[in-house]
């Protein structure tokens, strides 16, 4: 494991902790897209199907369990917790899951490294992760009131993707046979989706003003 990969995982972990902090302590999920959270739960469920059959390290297994557990518990809180669910922006969060999931599934069936059940679902999870943030970005654009924690959550998620790209570049030059076009292109698309958000995040940070997106 290199430093970029570790930094990526830690930013990812931090993003999840920020979101859980908001939900647990403020008992609010205002501005958080349930659609995006449900898509992440599906992403982790399909990617970590090998959790019992393929062991890499205790670190990997532990992180997989954390990402699975946190994504499903966030979904549970937003849907069923008696206080948290009342703060959910139901009417604004109208993105259709199928609109993203179906093309990703078709693409995974067409473009993959191996045509096996696990490999196709693993590839599907890569494609879906790339676009899973879209409902969240649409919700931000609609509500336009972004509290600090929600802003930090999205910033950290974007940071995680940025570090993973550095990790791939590092591994490409240090490891033989490390060539994974599908992972790279999906990851690059995912990172680019954050570019616009990053631009406004830095602008607000530079001017020391509250983050606000243009209409």
């Amino acid at each position: 494991m290199n430093i970029f990969r570790l930094a990526g995982d830690m930013t990812h972990l931090a993003s999840v902790l920020v979101l859980l902090l908001k939900i647990h302590t403020i008992k609010s999920c205002a501005g958080v897209s349930l659609k995006t959270q449900e898509l992440y739960a599906i992403v982790f469920a399909t990617r970590y199907l090998d959790i019992l059959t393929s062991f890499v390290s205790i670190y990997n297994t532990l992180m997989k369990l954390i990402f699975l557990g946190s994504s499903f518990s966030i979904v549970w809180y937003m849907k069923y917790h008696k206080t948290v669910r009342r703060t959910y922006d139901r009417d604004q969060d109208t993105f259709r899951h199928w609109f993203l999931m179906l093309p990703c599934l078709l693409l995974a069936l067409l473009i993959h490294e191996k045509f096996t059940f696990f490999e196709v679902l693993w590839t599907f999870s890569l494609y879906l992760e790339a676009v899973a943030i879209l409902p969240q970005l649409v919700l931000l654009q609609r509500t336009r009131n972004i509290d600090n924690l929600t802003g930090q959550y999205i910033f950290l998620l974007g940071g995680y993707r940025g570090f993973y790209i550095l990790n791939w570049i590092y591994r490409y030059f240090t490891e033989p046979h490390y060539v994974h076009w599908i992972t790279w292109i999906a990851g690059l698309v995912q990172t680019l989706l954050y570019a616009d958000f990053f631009y406004y995040y830095f602008l607000s940070w530079k001017n020391n003003k509250k983050l606000q997106l243009p209409a």
Binding site: D9, S57, Y164
Partner: peptide
């Protein structure tokens, strides 16, 4: 996973 595999990432 084999050396050079992407399956050891999260």
């Amino acid at each position: 996973p084999k050396n050079g595999s992407a399956k050891d990432e999260l």
